[in-house]
Nucleic acid binder design. Structure first.
Length: 566
DNA sequence: CGGACAAGCTGA
DNA sequence: CAGCTTGTCCGG
């Protein structure tokens, strides 16, 4: 008879972020690290994961039941690292690496086939790391090159893109070229070690037993960060997974954030040619009686409609509901904060920016007029205006749209850029909504949205690619950079701003909210600095993430206090 | 998290 | 002092 065995179990009760040991009964001898089990926990029957082996001691209860496979044993260290890195219970990350439904048997991964055909010879070697690419650079060649460079029996290349739809398309094209791929919805395949796993951010926790390498497409896209707590980022997870596996990773970006710049990056060929042609329509001088589309935007729309592209015109309207822009009704100058340049709002007759650098009465800094107009319309209003202006029926696409309209003119929020694949021209009806959004990342997101629009219209190299930007800030560096498709100045600027404001990579922040947040924040003390208030949350700053996390882990977090790492 | 149990509060 | 609420502790 075998010696008795015990295992350490973390339960689904995330609030109890601590393992407990159980005996492995003889019937469950096959139970491995990572597996899903049912255990009796404080007189409750709960599900959990075996996270390691344990010493046999007295008074241990036995595992109740083997439920199925979970993440492979080789992933336990990255899951533990993630829970420490994002100050969250381990169970959250065990869930991220586990199937939605229990899996009790695994397929066998296909054996690696020889790489046949010219395409594999043509692929030049691509050095790992951060690569600046143009919006119209096809990531397929990079993925193929990464696959060629890393493929090994029993190891998997993980590929992450910003959206499921993009992953599905990429995956289909990889399959066409003879690569065996697993999708995000095929947990069993990833767990069995399929050669390539493709998915959206969740694929960062693909349960592959061995990581051969990783490709992160559009690494600066917001959607690679989990929107809910814990706010883990696919790039951080994969970078660490690869580091631990001594495996290479590649990350592409249209515009390297300061964080990625600090890692060092190279530029992939002719970036400029892959950006769309950008035409700026400065509405400051415009006739206030102009419709939604002014001058060149209107003629470009008519030209596009006389062409044969199925979707001729996409009008991008900044997302609904939040933040209205104030403008002078006399001279059209925007109301902006003199300190930070962000858009000002008017609340109870007081005009100020979100950070309240200056609180003032309503008057135009340019002409002194006190008459204002609100520059903000919903998508439906925009649609009616467009129909009148273009004498065309216009469809609407928002995040909640289920089937795409069949009209040749489409207006939508940012969701439209993910849903419509091709168009002759994209018009951003009010670019200032992006430029002046009350976010530190507003300027780079403004560039980003033009890049994503450029994917619908194609590149200036191909003699296509018209993105038309209506703005009252024609002399802004962001706008000029887009027109020239030349971003070096902007990148330097962003890097220096990050340094000055101690944003990543020059600092790390966490926001603390909830009952007891103030005393908790205060108790953290050196070397962290605390600012903020009850309403907006207390902001804790540190030199870097490690310092921040180490300091926060030394003080027990009171219940009901929520911590968000920026 | 959720059960167990203790201490505190209330009203007849 | 029963009956209820609120708080604290703890799980293998």
């Amino acid at each position: 008879m075998d010696a008795p065995r015990a295992v350490r179990v973390v339960t689904e009760v995330a609030a109890v972020d601590r393992p407990f040991d159980y005996l492995v009964p003889e019937g469950l001898a096959k139970t491995g690290v990572g597996d899903r089990v049912r255990v009796d926990f404080n007189n409750r029957s709960v599900r959990g994961w075996v996270v390691s082996d344990a010493h046999v001691s007295e008074n241990l209860k036995s595992l109740g039941k083997w439920l199925g496979y979970g993440p492979p044993a080789s992933m336990m260290d990255i899951l533990l690292w993630s829970s420490e890195r994002w100050l969250a219970p381990l169970a959250r990350f065990l869930v991220a690496a586990s199937p939605r439904q229990l899996v009790t048997s695994l397929p066998t991964a296909p054996a690696l086939r020889a790489l046949e055909g010219d395409q594999w010879q043509r692929l030049s070697d691509q050095a790992p790391g951060v690569i600046q690419v143009s919006p119209n650079t096809d990531p397929l060649d990079l993925v193929l090159a990464a696959y060629r460079a890393t493929r090994a029996d029993g190891a998997s290349l993980i590929v992450v893109t910003p959206t499921e739809a993009w992953s599905r398309r990429l995956r289909g094209r990889l399959e066409q070229r003879g690569c065996a791929t697993a999708g995000a919805d095929e947990w069993e395949r990833a767990r069995a070690g399929w050669p390539i796993v493709v998915g959206a951010r969740g694929a960062a926790f693909a349960p592959v037993p061995r990581v051969a390498g990783a490709v992160i497409v559009d690494a600066d896209d917001e959607s690679l960060r989990s929107p809910a707590q814990p706010t883990w980022h696919a790039l951080d997870v994969l970078e660490e997974r690869c580091r631990r596996a001594s495996a290479p990773w590649w990350a592409t970006t249209m515009l390297p954030s300061p964080r990625l710049m600090a890692k060092g990056y190279r530029v992939d060929g002719d970036i400029r040619g892959g950006w769309p042609r950008v035409t700026v329509i400065d509405r400051r001088g415009g006739d206030p009686h102009d419709g939604l589309l002014a001058g060149e935007a209107l003629s470009a729309a008519h030209r596009a409609l006389s062409g044969d592209e199925a979707v001729a015109v996409v009008v991008l309207h900044h997302r609904l509901g939040r933040g209205r822009l104030l403008a002078c009704a006399a001279c059209h100058e925007l109301y902006r904060c003199a300190v930070c340049g962000q858009a000002e709002q008017e609340v109870d007759d007081v005009v100020s920016c979100a950070s309240e650098h200056e609180r003032r009465r309503r008057f135009c800094r340019a002409c002194g007029s006190t008459r204002v107009k609100l520059l903000r319309q919903g998508v439906s209003t925009v649609r009616r205006d467009l129909e009148a202006q273009l004498s065309q029926s216009v469809g609407e696409v928002t995040a909640s749209t289920e089937t795409l309209p069949s009209t040749r003119v489409v207006v939508g929020t940012e969701a439209v850029l993910q849903r419509v694949r091709r168009a002759s021209v994209v018009i951003i009806d009010d670019f200032d909504q992006y430029l002046l959004a009350p976010r530190e990342t507003a300027r780079r997101q403004a560039v980003d949205v033009v890049g994503r629009a450029g994917r619908l219209v194609g590149s200036r190299r191909a003699g296509r690619g018209d993105v038309i930007v209506q703005t009252r800030r024609g002399d802004d560096l962001v706008v000029r950079s887009l027109v020239d498709a030349s971003f070096d100045r902007l990148l330097d600027d962003e890097f220096e701003t990050a340094r000055a404001l101690r944003l990543a990579p020059f600092g790390a922040r966490a926001t603390i909210r909830g009952a007891g947040a103030q005393s908790y924040a205060a108790s953290l003390g050196d070397p962290l600095t605390v600012s903020g208030d009850e309403v907006h949350g207390f902001v804790v700053r540190a030199r870097d993430v490690n310092q921040l996390v180490d300091a926060m882990r030394t003080v027990a977090k009171p219940p009901h206090v929520r911590v968000a790492l920026d």
